[in-house]
Design a protein around this nucleic acid. Structure first.
Lengths: 353, 353
DNA sequence: CCAAAGATGTAAAACGTTTTTGAGGTGCAG
DNA sequence: CTGCACCTCAAAAACGTTTTACATCTTTGG
């Protein structure tokens, strides 16, 4: 493997000149540049990333911190991230926190020490850790700033670039859709209510009801933990509390809980969507595979990955137009399937898993 | 951020001594070592990975090359990999080839230039690219060998460490189970037959039939491409060819195709498992969520990740007992669910997706 | 025509480690 | 007491780049 010295030798120039043509760091006259490029080409020279990084104090790498890699949410995000990293010659290093805030801090430390160009963070800290978020915004290493973009959560108020889906709009869409289907007795299976993901969706749900002059009694909202099992339990509780006739529409804050609820309803002998309509959230591909297929709110996962990555690269390369934090709020979209419309056309064949 | 110089200064030793106590590269007397450790602790010193890597010519990083990150297979593998990397202080860098052999070569080049400690490769080259596989086994960079472990495919014959599930045994288990259920008219929906994944499963399937003095006519084997849609089409063709009564058991080479077949059978008005029993492969969590839940052959994904990672680390650190390629064949396991046993207990609540 | 400025090149310093080389002691055999 | 091995440590070289500082040569303005 040739080094920069060999290239310089072959092109009859100094190594500094070679470096200059590679990095466009200073003008090099046309004939010399030509010679250098040719030498590089002939030798198949590629600069050693390590030496380069050591000197530049930046790795051409971005870090992704996930809360639980086995979630169906991430692969699509990663796909999007990869698309833009590929184009820009960056590498992706992956860390998983398993929902442990301690571990999250560790990941950030490691990535910072590795001097990645930036970090995409899906935090497992909840909204009350203001000090923590603020420290993220101020993150730097040996004087070099470390760009961080928050994934899923809107942390712009703490100074962090954030890419997230509009949960309030999503909740609103879900409620409105149920109402449009003729439902009047609605209930909500929420996520953990200390997090804004769950809060936003609930908020939108409430907003739509209000707009339609309906109210949502507290007992019609039961919180789960985003797991399938909790969706099952939540649905059972709702049915106990209201009786089977008191309910004709359920909005679950994610697809997993919707699937769990589906099991519960089926066990009670309720038909979906005839007796009860059901809407999930996230539009994981599971929603299209499950029977009956699940009406849900789409979250543009791949697009989120793309946005996060390109935002980060812009920051890293210092050509981010904007000085302040960027809020990248992506629109929610209703996807109608069989749990609200028996005649919905199936799209199961479209998904490769 | 303190450097090694500050540590040396504070401990009143040379930087060489500091390095020696950190890396245990040469003996250091107890009192000095103590002073150094204390200084490190007080300053919170951590060696700069870049400088370290440049000198050692090794990044404390391993690369994973996937064929299609959105596949449900990978997250669990990654989970396993992460477990052991975490413990050993390695980072994971992820590359995806999108099933493009060209891109795969590129990924390998990049990882090699980045001097990762090793590469876990799920190749998209098929079994005929002998020269390619051999070149992988001989991979090195500037004289430094680059360990590669093959994921999913057994490439030990080309000199590559490989971790893979026993597909033949899996096919055998599937067939035997169908026979045990009383099926006699069996068919197989295969994967792409140029790959050994598909071949092995078919082989095992055939073996079990043979053992039971049954034969598998060629028209009872139709190949798909591992996609759900192809499973659907394959099932349709099987039904056309044999008539609805000529078939009482289908083994599909993965869960996706099994799910597709399921749709087809349902459309033809066939009841599962009453009229036809169905077995998939991989035990993706989807198998447990789909209705009816899918009997399938389990592939220990997390364990595969763990094994691949630890094998790689051993090689990288030069303490691999074995000189030759290591074949890590993992046992297949039958998981019985509703598509072969109507009374199977459901386990959908166990999975978090 | 000279001073200042610009353009283009080179040598050498720097990045922060690890590794090599060699120096200074100490103990032991002859 | 000398010579030799040995242990411990420090000084300096090395890793392969990028960057800085400076040299040279050409323009340009006055």
């Amino acid at each position: 493997m040739p080094g920069i010295k060999e290239v310089a030798q072959r092109a009859h120039v100094s190594i500094a000149t070679v470096s200059n043509v590679i990095n466009n760091t200073r003008p090099v006259s046309a004939p010399l540049r030509q010679r250098v490029l040719q030498a590089i080409d002939e030798l198949g020279y590629v600069a050693d990333p390590m030496a380069s990084q050591l000197k530049k104090r930046r790795a051409r790498t971005i870090g992704l911190i996930t809360t639980r890699i086995t979630s169906v949410f991430y692969p699509y995000v990663i796909d999007g991230i990869n698309q833009v990293l590929d184009q820009n010659g960056y590498d992706l290093v992956l860390h998983d926190t398993r929902d442990d805030t301690e571990r999250e801090i560790n990941c950030i430390r490691r990535l910072t020490q590795a001097r990645v160009s930036g970090i995409i963070l899906d935090t497992s800290h909840d909204k009350h850790d203001e000090a923590y978020f603020l420290s993220l915004a101020a993150l730097s290493h040996r004087g070099y700033p470390m760009p961080v973009v928050s994934l899923e959560l809107d942390l712009t108020r703490y100074g962090l670039d954030s890419v997230f889906a509009d949960g309030t709009e999503g909740g609103d869409l879900a409620a409105q859709h149920l109402l449009d289907c003729g439902c009047r007795q609605l209930a909500h299976i929420a996520g953990p209510l200390h997090g804004s993901l769950a809060q936003d969706r609930l908020l939108g749900f409430r907003r739509a009801l209000l707009r339609n002059s309906l109210t949502l009694p507290d007992r019609r909202v039961v919180a789960g933990d985003f797991s399938q099992a909790s969706g099952y339990r939540a649905a059972c509780r709702l049915l106990e509390q209201t009786g089977p006739d008191g309910l004709d529409g359920i909005f679950a804050a994610n697809d997993q809980m919707a699937a769990g609820a589906c099991h519960a309803l089926r066990e009670k002998g309720l038909a979906i969507p005839r007796d009860i309509r059901l809407v999930g959230y996230d539009n994981t591909f599971i929603a299209s595979i499950v029977r009956p297929s699940l009406t849900t709110i789409d979250v543009p996962k791949t697009e989120m990955g793309r946005l996060a990555a390109s935002c980060l690269i812009e920051r890293a390369e210092g050509r981010s137009g904007q000085p302040g934090p960027r809020a990248m709020r992506l629109p929610a979209k209703l996807v109608v399937r069989e749990t609200t419309d028996p005649d919905a056309e199936s799209d199961w064949a479209l998904f490769d898993w």
